[in-house]
Design a binder for these strands. Structure first.
Lengths: 342, 342
DNA sequence: ATCGGGCTCTATAACGTTATACAGGCGACT
DNA sequence: AGTCGCCTGTATAACGTTATAGAGCCCGAT
């Protein structure tokens, strides 16, 4: 049977309000009665009814994490960290899979789901800056990833340009001259790949390498299949690349598969680097060199800043956080000369 | 501002109860007033307060999906299907990552979290049949995967023995004679690997092959790293296997990595087959032959049967469902003679 | 002595819903 | 004509919680 404040009150011989005060400490309670109430709680096994509490407080204790694809290991690993942090802060986290579709993403920032949720952590890919600006959310929102910039919300994303520099410079340091980029976006409203492409171009220029538009391969999405097809195209050129910087690890893995199917060697013929450091890249053949963002940090920070907004702690302006990242070198650029897993 | 039934009632000039009846159709409402109320709802943009509704109804509309690891792509893909089905049934699904730990799994079937959840879909790995029997849950529970059998709960899992037969028979059809199994479990209370191991042994016997305990490699968990280490051990034997049936695709991928590191060829020296059909195996080098369970089907069915229990539709006894599966052959057993992706 | 003010505790009004009980009106059947 | 029953609509009591207002009581200060 389900036990409520009333039952505890009856058992301990005190009023309902006193029990409530013991439970959540709003008003001090005399020592003697406190222990009597507490033991009644323990005996009967009381747990507060969250629906009632939320109705009373006007909050639900639920936050949503909306990501483009749950089956992308990067997001799965990120979600793990976010779930742990949310739980430890007393919130429940629900995940929404937008599938990267424009309509689905719009429905996230419309007010429809907001009735049930205290706040939203959102990783946009399809939605534009204007879409976000046009829909001031009813509850706090934190943006993660590289989708939308310059909007009045907290934003957590690695410095994509700097990360791209590091990636390209690594390839340059291996004496590669025809370095391709896979994951250039045709559509205007996806700023994510934009930044990585820009970092790629800047790094090329910094190394004194020419910018060849034919080496910037567009993709429609960022999965393994996209990397595979783009790489096939690149290899069919008269002057194929000798290195590839992929938008993310999934794309890189697709690209590596295309190289293998073409009968070429990695990294001798083509070196490959990605971004994300998903576990898959530590066991692939060859293992994948990558830029590793601190996913645990990102997930935790996203929840923490959202909760801070929800509970109205500091009324500071929206801030941009750039979590740390590092280069992890593996076989796909260094060959067998290196320890295999890191 | 937030709009409630009261606002709609005032706007439409009717009572609160009438608006409620328009919204959820408990009692019929005259046509004329219905349209007046409906247009008031549309104008003011009313959405029911779920906390209040749940408090009144005694249900929260939330179901939990507890899985051992969110970063296992198999569960990520399964969770996607479950989330979609739950949403379409008007429920919100929250995910719990038990990390496969015994304590965490116990806390799932204890009553602690049940205050907030109408029901639980649970994929146990560490918990035993007796643990489950000793804790009759306060809310409905559906089990998925191969953890625990013969308990009074709905259970959805592929026929592991039949699946193992198919896998081993496929290897036998390729004239392999020393077929190893990776993922045998030392612990007694993990029945999952037990069944697959049993299917493996039965299939060997059916093919007239001897049972060699040295070829059944135990692992502590079921990740890529476990497959890698087990395979290293197997390859170090004086008589290494010429084929491997792995507990799941992740283990298989780790095993393939070990084979590559040893400088051996797949499938010429060692053929590899897994279970799960995760996307990773369609792009690995080589691509991975696997047993493909219908994940979409499993996820949807789990939610459907849980919701049926929650809403008390049919009071039938707990039932066991065995969703379909199929063999998907790829390079890791057939080599390059086959279409690459399916 | 009397009053002000901590200190404990209590009664109660919300929060927004849904289901029950009830009221009035109108047609149909005895 | 009277009664029964249906149809439409309303008033209201919960569901379990938290915050506000306030009721006693005892001690120190006026």
């Amino acid at each position: 049977m389900v036990v409520s404040l009333k039952d505890i009150a009856a058992r301990a011989g005190v009023s309902l309000s006193t029990v409530s005060n013991v439970v959540n400490g709003y008003r001090p309670v005399g020592e003697e009665t406190r222990v009597r109430v507490q033991s009644a709680i323990d005996e009967l096994g009381y747990a507060p009814n969250l629906s009632a509490r939320h109705l009373r407080l006007g909050r639900t204790g639920i936050i949503a994490l909306a990501i483009p694809e749950l089956d992308n290991p990067y997001f799965a690993e990120l979600a793990g960290a976010a779930i742990r942090e949310a739980t430890s802060q007393g919130y429940t986290l629900v995940m929404e899979d937008t599938a990267g579709s424009y309509e689905h993403e719009l429905s996230m920032i419309d007010n429809s789901r907001r009735q049930i949720v205290d706040g939203l952590i959102f990783s946009p890919v399809a939605v534009s800056r204007e879409d976000v600006l046009a829909r001031p959310p009813a509850t706090p929102m934190v943006l993660i990833g590289e989708g939308v910039y310059d909007v009045p919300h907290d934003h957590i994303a690695i410095d994509n340009i700097a990360a791209s520099h590091v990636a390209v410079q690594h390839l340059v340091s291996l004496d590669r001259y025809r370095i391709a980029f896979i994951g250039a976006q045709a559509g205007d409203h996806r700023q994510s790949a934009h930044l990585r492409l820009r970092g790629y171009r800047e790094a090329l220029a910094g190394a004194g390498l020419p910018w060849d538009p034919a080496l910037a391969a567009p993709t429609t999405a960022f999965g393994r299949a996209d990397g595979l097809m783009a790489m096939r195209d690149l290899l069919a050129r008269t002057q194929p690349p000798d290195a590839v910087f992929a938008y993310n690890d999934l794309v890189a893995i697709g690209a590596m598969r295309a190289v293998a199917e073409a009968g070429l060697r990695i990294p001798e013929d083509v070196a490959v680097i990605g971004i994300d450091d998903i576990e898959e890249g530590r066991f692939s053949n060859p293992t994948l060199t990558t830029i590793s963002p601190d996913k645990e940090h990102i997930g935790r920070l996203a929840v923490q800043s959202l909760v801070a907004r929800i509970e109205g702690k500091p009324v500071e302006p929206p801030y941009d956080v750039q979590p740390p990242f590092r280069l992890v070198t593996r076989e796909s650029t260094l060959g067998g000369q290196r320890p295999v897993r890191t």
